[in-house]
Every structure is written in C-alpha cells, then in structure tokens.
Design a protein around this nucleic acid. Structure first.
Lengths: 352, 352
DNA sequence: TTGTACGCGTTATCAA
DNA sequence: TTGATAACGCGTACAA
C-alpha cells in the first residue's frame, strides 16, 4: 500500500472560518451573498480562502441548496458532427452563464437513454436536453412529475410540458422530394438511418412518401433501406438499392454521411452523379461541400439549435418561465448531386 | 409566482426503506454491495426502488463516500471529429464501469482551460483527462498537490506524476516528410493549425523540419502558414502558400480538415493533385477517404486513445496504481494525394 | 443478515 | 452584521 498516494484533504468551509476567525455561516455568506457581509470581515475571509486555496464542495452545496447549476444533455452519440456541433454551442451558452453541462450518450438505445436520464437527474441536473421525441411516454411523465425543465432538440413536439427547439423533419424532407419530382424523378429510393427509436430518421422517410403521394405516385412503392451511420454501410446499402429494378433515378439519403457513402459507391460503380443517378443528403455538414459532386441537401442550423436550447432551459430554470416551442427554418441547399432525371431509355445501357 | 411549478420532492433512501419495511442501511447495501443482503429482502427493496422510481442523490452520495465516480475531461472543442470520437470512446468505457464523464471545453484558450480544470475539481472529479502538454506548469503542480490522477491524451509527456496516452507527433510528421522527400519533393510548405498553446500542432511542424534537416535541407526555409480549423480558412491559406515562389511541390497539412480545404482550393485553381502539387493530411478521419484525391495521411487511433485513457484513469482511481505512459503507434496511410514531385520544368507553365 | 446512529460540507433559519 | 444549529440524503462503523 502506497501511503504517499493518499489524497490530501481539501480545505473545508470550517477551515476557512477558523483561519478568518469567523463562523462558517459568515464564510458561506461571503461566497454566496457578499453584500450581506461587512467589508472588513469579507476581506479577511477572502484572504483565508485564497491562502487555503479553498474551493467549495459541490456535493455538499448541492445537498444543502438543492440546486446544482448543472444542465444535462443526453444525445445518441458524440461521434456525429451534428450533435457535437450543437452540443458545443449548447455548452458555450451555459458556460457564459456560469453553468455547467453534463453530457451522456445513449448509443441510440432507448434503455440506455433512460438510464442516462436518471443518472443525470440523480446528479442533480437542473434541466435536461433530449434529442427527438421517440421514447417511452412514461419517461416524459416521470420528467413532468419531477417538474424538471426539458427541451427536446432536433425535432418538434406539441407536448405542452416540454420545450422544443427543432425543425420539421417531415416537411423538410417533403420539400426536397418535391423538388426532385419537379426534376422528373419518378423512381425514387430512400437510404435511411435506422428508424427504430429515431423519429428524425423516420420522419424524413415519411416526408418523402408524402411528396410522392401528392404527385399521385404510390408512396409504398418507394424502396427504403435502413443502415447504420457510416460511409461503409452506406456504400453497401446503396449498392443493394441500385441493383433493384427498376433502377432508381434518385436515392434520397437520411443524412449527409450516408449520402457521401452513396456518392462514393456510385462513382466506383461507374455511375455518373447526377448524370446517371441523383443523390441527396440531409444536415448540410462540411462533408457535403467537400465531396464531388457536392451534395444537394437540407441545411439544418445545428449550432443555433444548441444555442437556443440552452437559452430556453436557462430561462425556465432561472426565471421560472414556461415551456417554449421553437421551430427553426431549414432550407434546401442546391449543389451538384441532384440533377434532372435521366431519360428512361438510358436505363438499359448502364453498367451493372 | 407560479405555485404549480414547484419541484416535487424526489424519493429518498428513507422512502424506499419505509416502502420495503427495512432500514435505510439495508437499502443502501442493496444498491452498493448486493451480495451482503439476502435474496428475499433484496427483491422487496428493488421492487420498492422501481415503484418509487428512486434514484440516489448524487450530492449526498459524494458527501458520504468522498468519491464521486466522476471523471472530468477538458478538451479544446467538441466540434472536432477527433476529440468527439476519442471522448465518445472515453465515455463508453466509463459508463461500462459505472462511472460518469464530465466534459468541458476550453476553446483552445489556456485561461479558460485552467478555469474548467478548477470547476471540474470543485465538482469532485476523481480524475482528469487533459489534451496535450501545453499549459502553465503551475497547473500540473496544483494537480500533483491534490494527488489527483491525470492523463494527458493526444501527446506524450515524461512528467512522472502524469499519465499519458498519446503518440509521437514529431516522429509521425517526420516520417511522413521523409516519405515525401524520398519521392523527390524539395519545395515543401506547411499549412498548420495555430501552434500557440498547441503542442500537437507545433510538433507536427517540428517533425517536418527535422526531416528536412536530416536530408541536408534548410529547415528554416520551409514556409509555414498557420490558420484556424476550418475548410474555408484552409483554402485561403493554401492559396497564399501556392503563390509563393518557388512554388511548393508539396503542402503538408497539420490535419485532415486543413488538407481537405487545400485539396479543394488546388482543384479550383486548376491544379492537379498530386500531378501538379501534392498534399498530405494528419489524423485519418473519414473525410480523408471521401475526398478526391483521397488523402495520404497519418493514421491516429483516436478511439483507442480515448478507451485507454479511461482505463488508465480507472486503474489509478480504483486500484491506486501509479501513472502510466503509453505511446501508441501511428502509421502512414498512403492514398492518392501524395505523389512524386513534378519535374521542375513544369513549374513555369502552370496556371496562375 | 439487518438495524442504529453518526458524520460528510454546505446552506438557511433564527436569534443575538 | 454575525453566530449557533438544524436540515440535506447517503454510507458505514458498530451493535444486535
């Protein structure tokens, strides 16, 4: 046993009180409401604080004050540019307001998400950021019972007890599909992220179906393949989609990463994008601008969403204001990967 | 004042104890050392826990146990794939071990970093993950005094009190430069991230210089431009570098994002990569495989680094083991963006 | 195997 | 303006 490795005892309020020859209550006041303390003693106390390098114990403080100044966020994964970006903005606002962020990730697993939510609550989170709406309603109830401010991000909800800062995934996807239909595409396939427990992914498919229906096409005839969030999986899934007959003239992808994989695979198959086949993305991350052809995609204001989510939560906690429902605008960014549908007769002559 | 907005009282250990008709001590034991409790009572207690949706109060627990089971991480920004990826792995290991991660970001500012470190300590972090070695030595001292386990990631240190899980940035960059020199490149320029307070960026430049020197070239003649982490800035910086005379035949970039920007700009300038000019990256993120030409770059095991960092820290905290210094291997991934140096005579006939 | 009782470091109430 | 002192919720000797 290495005796030298014992953790040094940190100074406590009491140590400071002794050093400054005052009571612990006075020290506490000096730190929390300095105006209620005389200048002279304040000076003495602050000096002791500095001398001892005192820093208040968070646990004790949380226990006594029943407030932690901590905001929790549960996201599917940090290893996804859109969430990382949004969270960075979320945290920035919190830090600027003297608060702390606690992150946890759920790996897209509802059960893990539930656990993480409980963990964050146990740790005294004053409010929570959650992604999307797909979860056991019991959880929302649980949260409501606790009267804990919650903001849903990346999606909208009408649930009155919950705040949201999101956008309309269905509508955005529908608009994009309509644009493609206007370009003459009729054989449209969808390359989606897994839709189970993922309302964003599901709604993007739904939006496309809606557009088809509006134009008198059969929405159920649209082939949909679900795959995991990675370039490699996207390539495989794209391959499967393209080998179908009739071959799609457009593959809409649930996000830019999948679209990037699709573009790669298309090129490797000898298909010209968008000459032989069009591909669209969703999210508008940097990747979309960097590949060739650059992606036509839906621009989503990820940073703004993170920022607003923090502001909404801060407001609910600090000013006891009610839930807010914010729907942000998205817009289509036209780049090169979506073009007019190729003439039908070409289909037969294409490489495998 | 909205009376309905009062936070409901959370159930406590005592509530559970009452519901299960046992003492609080027994409930506590059920949760912390289940083997010291009989099956029958355990069952009863767990049921009560579920019924009441009980979840232990973190503050109280920390206070009583003098341990928070919390591991802090201070990174420059989450909005960078490599840190996001590493952190995700870091957190995964922690969660698997029943621990929690606390993240804070410093925005590459040493002063903010220092504050964040103190915040995390105040919040009872049992250990800390820090990126790189560039910081006021006073901080390391402070940490050592507190006997708080610290792991440095993305770089190595010989500081005996600190653990590290990193790789040799100098050496990796040197190897890449040597490979380029072997391909005949003599006019090499470096497009770097800001090197102030960033030992990783600085060491990558140093590695290239070292290689030049070994081959009898003047290292100080290598042009270096520093720019911020974004495609757009990289494009501008690349443009400036290329307009120099003699025009470089290779632009080494401090990371893949900068390299992606460089490749884009080169193509827009009508330069063939690597025919007219070669470009290399560093990190090997997905982006590197997706752009054309794909990047020749240095592969860094980001996830593994995060995983190991967590394991090292867990080990130090739970088994009181000493600091460990782990150096991971990197390797060059040869793709298309680095080719042989073009013949000198071509220089004059190039566009622009 | 289970229960009793104390202490952890802070805030907040009430007197002085 | 200051000082006692009672919570806050949990872990853990120690006792039963």
């Amino acid at each position: 046993m290495d005796v030298t490795a014992q953790k040094n005892e940190l100074p406590t309020l009491e140590d400071v009180a002794k050093a400054a020859r005052v009571s612990t209550a006075t020290v506490s006041r000096c730190l929390n409401s300095p105006d209620r303390v005389s200048e002279s003693t304040k000076k003495r106390v602050m000096e002791a604080v500095r001398d001892l390098k005192y820093s208040p114990n968070f646990g004790a403080r949380a226990l006594a004050a029943k407030k932690t100044n901590t905001y929790g966020a549960v996201i599917p994964t940090m290893d996804n540019a859109i969430f990382a970006r949004g969270l960075q903005a979320f945290q920035q606002v919190l830090v600027d307001n003297g608060a702390t962020m606690l992150v946890a990730s759920s790996a897209y697993d509802p059960e893990i998400e539930e656990n993480q939510i409980k963990t964050l609550i146990a740790r005294g989170a004053d409010a929570l950021l959650l992604i999307g709406t797909d979860r056991d309603p019991g959880i929302h109830e649980f949260l409501r019972d606790r009267n804990l401010p919650v903001v849903i991000a990346w999606a909208c909800t009408t649930e009155p007890a919950l705040s949201c800062v999101g956008f309309d995934n269905v509508e955005a996807s529908r608009q994009l599909a309509l644009k493609a239909l206007d370009l003459g595409h009729r054989e449209i396939a969808f390359l989606s992220a897994f839709t189970k427990s993922n309302d964003r992914a599901r709604n993007r498919v739904i939006g496309a179906r809606k557009a088809l229906e509006e134009r008198g096409l059969d929405p159920s005839s649209m082939p949909v393949v679900e795959t995991k969030y990675s370039i490699r999986s996207a390539r495989e899934a794209f391959g499967a989609l393209v080998r179908r007959s009739p071959r799609p003239t457009l593959v809409m992808c649930g996000n830019d990463v999948l679209a990037a994989g699709a573009v790669q695979e298309a090129r490797d198959m000898g298909l010209d994008v968008p000459g032989d086949i069009s591909i669209t993305g969703f999210d508008d991350i940097e990747l979309a601008t960097v590949i060739r052809p650059a992606l036509t995609t839906v621009h989503v204001p990820h940073r703004k969403m993170g920022r607003l989510a923090a502001e909404v939560l801060l407001d609910q906690v600090r000013h006891n204001s009610g839930p807010r429902h914010i729907t942000l605008d998205t817009h289509i960014v036209e780049r090169a990967s979506l073009g007019p549908a190729p003439a039908l007769c070409r289909t037969a002559s294409l490489p495998l």
